Lab assay of single mutants.
Amino acid sequence: KLLSSIEQACDICRLKKLKCSKEKPKCAKCLKNNWECRYSPKTKRSPLTRAHLTEVESRLERLE
């Protein structure tokens, strides 16, 4: 599967780190437990900047 097509777990399953069936409108866990089942939009991760990478590398060197 391509990364862009990976389905996201519902908010509660993601928060509780449960295996989500990803069914809509309610996944199996939410249906069974009568929880409100919501699927928040995916958040875009910002790409690493060179400055951040350099900072992490220098912190790693100090720890070694």
Rank of each mutant, 00 (worst) to 15 (best):
residue 1 K to F: 05
residue 1 K to H: 15
residue 1 K to Y: 07
residue 2 L to Q: 12
residue 2 L to W: 10
residue 2 L to P: 12
residue 3 L to I: 14
residue 3 L to K: 15
residue 3 L to F: 12
residue 4 S to H: 14
residue 4 S to M: 12
residue 5 S to Y: 14
residue 6 I to A: 14
residue 6 I to Q: 13
residue 6 I to P: 14
residue 7 E to D: 11
residue 8 Q to P: 13
residue 8 Q to G: 07
residue 8 Q to M: 14
residue 8 Q to K: 11
residue 11 D to R: 03
residue 11 D to I: 04
residue 11 D to E: 09
residue 11 D to S: 07
residue 11 D to K: 02
residue 11 D to H: 01
residue 12 I to C: 14
residue 13 C to S: 08
residue 13 C to R: 03
residue 15 L to D: 12
residue 15 L to Y: 06
residue 16 K to N: 03
residue 16 K to H: 06
residue 17 K to I: 01
residue 17 K to N: 04
residue 18 L to Q: 14
residue 18 L to N: 13
residue 18 L to E: 09
residue 18 L to I: 15
residue 18 L to Y: 10
residue 19 K to D: 05
residue 19 K to Y: 02
residue 19 K to F: 02
residue 20 C to E: 00
residue 20 C to I: 08
residue 21 S to G: 03
residue 21 S to K: 07
residue 21 S to P: 04
residue 21 S to L: 02
residue 21 S to R: 05
residue 22 K to M: 02
residue 22 K to A: 07
residue 23 E to W: 04
residue 23 E to P: 04
residue 24 K to G: 04
residue 25 P to A: 00
residue 27 C to S: 03
residue 27 C to Q: 00
residue 28 A to Q: 12
residue 28 A to V: 11
residue 29 K to L: 02
residue 30 C to A: 06
residue 30 C to L: 05
residue 30 C to I: 00
residue 31 L to G: 08
residue 31 L to W: 08
residue 34 N to T: 05
residue 34 N to L: 06
residue 34 N to Y: 03
residue 35 W to N: 08
residue 35 W to V: 10
residue 35 W to C: 04
residue 36 E to P: 08
residue 36 E to W: 05
residue 37 C to Q: 01
residue 37 C to N: 00
residue 38 R to D: 04
residue 38 R to Y: 10
residue 39 Y to W: 02
residue 40 S to E: 12
residue 41 P to G: 00
residue 42 K to Q: 03
residue 42 K to P: 09
residue 43 T to W: 09
residue 45 R to P: 04
residue 45 R to I: 09
residue 46 S to W: 09
residue 46 S to C: 11
residue 46 S to M: 02
residue 46 S to R: 12
residue 47 P to L: 06
residue 47 P to S: 07
residue 48 L to V: 06
residue 48 L to A: 07
residue 48 L to Y: 06
residue 48 L to K: 03
residue 49 T to Q: 09
residue 49 T to Y: 07
residue 49 T to V: 06
residue 50 R to T: 03
residue 50 R to Y: 02
residue 51 A to V: 05
residue 51 A to F: 03
residue 51 A to H: 12
residue 51 A to M: 07
residue 51 A to K: 13
residue 52 H to C: 06
residue 52 H to V: 04
residue 53 L to D: 00
residue 53 L to H: 08
residue 53 L to S: 02
residue 54 T to N: 13
residue 54 T to G: 10
residue 54 T to A: 07
residue 55 E to T: 11
residue 56 V to Y: 11
residue 57 E to P: 00
residue 57 E to W: 08
residue 57 E to S: 06
residue 57 E to D: 01
residue 58 S to W: 11
residue 59 R to L: 06
residue 59 R to H: 10
residue 60 L to I: 09
residue 60 L to E: 11
residue 61 E to P: 02
residue 61 E to D: 09
residue 61 E to C: 11
residue 63 L to P: 10
residue 63 L to E: 04
residue 63 L to T: 02
residue 64 E to I: 00
